[in-house]
């Protein structure tokens, strides 16, 4: 089972850990950061929804390879993916995060929270107009968005501090996915059996590698849940600001999940 979890994870990772580590100091130039910041809020939301959807597609492939997942009824497969896909992406983000300068790998380079500023407010051109009119220079249209981005970075930082191996990250992702306490499961007992097997295998791995202290240091599950509901709140606030935006602006899988 341990081999299956690691193999499934490695086969469905977009980037190898060594590659992400090797490039961890390749950061965006200040001009490149400005270009991201000058984008309109809608453009940046669509861009991030696109990247997130790609990551979620990898999660679906990961799930399909996990022993026992495809034996569940399709209703439960969908329930588990709907509830867990974003959480798995957030856990996996620690592999693509440089905790030394608080940057994350995004579209080919590493960038900090400032890269995502346009998600929460109008681009720099809008700020210029605001200043000319004597209003606040950085009026925030979705102030909660900056909290969401910082919380996601804080979460990645706290996971990075645990220095998890690929096997450990793979198990954390598998356990986030095969969670028998998700609401609306039809065959909860079947999921609980899979979850139980994963937990035993994970404990054995931790014992073998003398990493048993990891379990006590993991962030509580409520923290992931909170990040997911913050994401939904911001998405709803974004839709209220842009009621005319065509649904087709977001990838179909993103619309289906959120």
């Amino acid at each position: 089972l341990t081999q299956n979890v690691l193999k499934s994870y490695l086969e469905t990772c977009a980037q190898r850990t060594e590659e992400l580590q090797r490039r961890r100091w390749e950061t965006f130039s200040s001009q490149e950061v400005c270009a991201y910041q000058r984008q309109s809020m809608a453009e940046m939301w669509q861009r991030c929804a696109g990247r997130l959807t790609e990551a979620i597609q990898q999660v679906v492939e990961f799930a399909k390879r996990l022993q026992g997942f495809m034996d569940l009824c399709q209703h439960d497969q969908i329930v588990l993916l709907k509830a867990g896909a974003l959480e798995v992406v957030l856990v996996g983000m620690c592999r693509a995060f440089n905790a030394d300068n608080r940057t994350v790998f995004f579209e080919g380079k590493y960038g900090g929270t400032e890269l995502f500023r346009a998600l929460g407010r109008a681009g720099d051109s809008g700020r210029g107009r605001g200043q000319a009119e004597g209003t606040a220079s950085d009026e925030e249209l979705l102030p909660g968005c900056h909290d969401l981005i910082s919380s996601i970075f804080d979460f990645a930082q706290s996971l990075c501090a645990l220095h998890c191996s690929d096997s450990e990250v793979a198990f954390l992702c598998a356990l986030v996915l095969l969670n028998a306490s998700r609401p609306w499961l039809q065959e909860q007992a079947k999921v609980a059996v899979l979850q139980g097997h994963l937990e035993v295998a994970f404990r054995l791995l931790l014992r073998r590698t003398q990493r048993e202290e990891l379990l006590a240091r993991l962030p509580p599950a409520g923290r992931l849940r909170a990040l997911c509901s913050q994401h939904l709140e911001q998405l709803q606030a974004f839709h209220r600001l842009h009621p005319g935006l065509l649904p087709a602006a977001f990838p179909p899988l993103y619309r289906e999940l959120f």
Binding site: Q57, E61, K64, E256
Partner: peptide, 14 residues
């Protein structure tokens, strides 16, 4: 309701 997820799950391991 979950057309895309159904499709992704039904496709063989790609």
């Amino acid at each position: 309701k979950h057309r895309i997820l159904h499709k992704l799950l039904q496709n063989g391991n790609s």
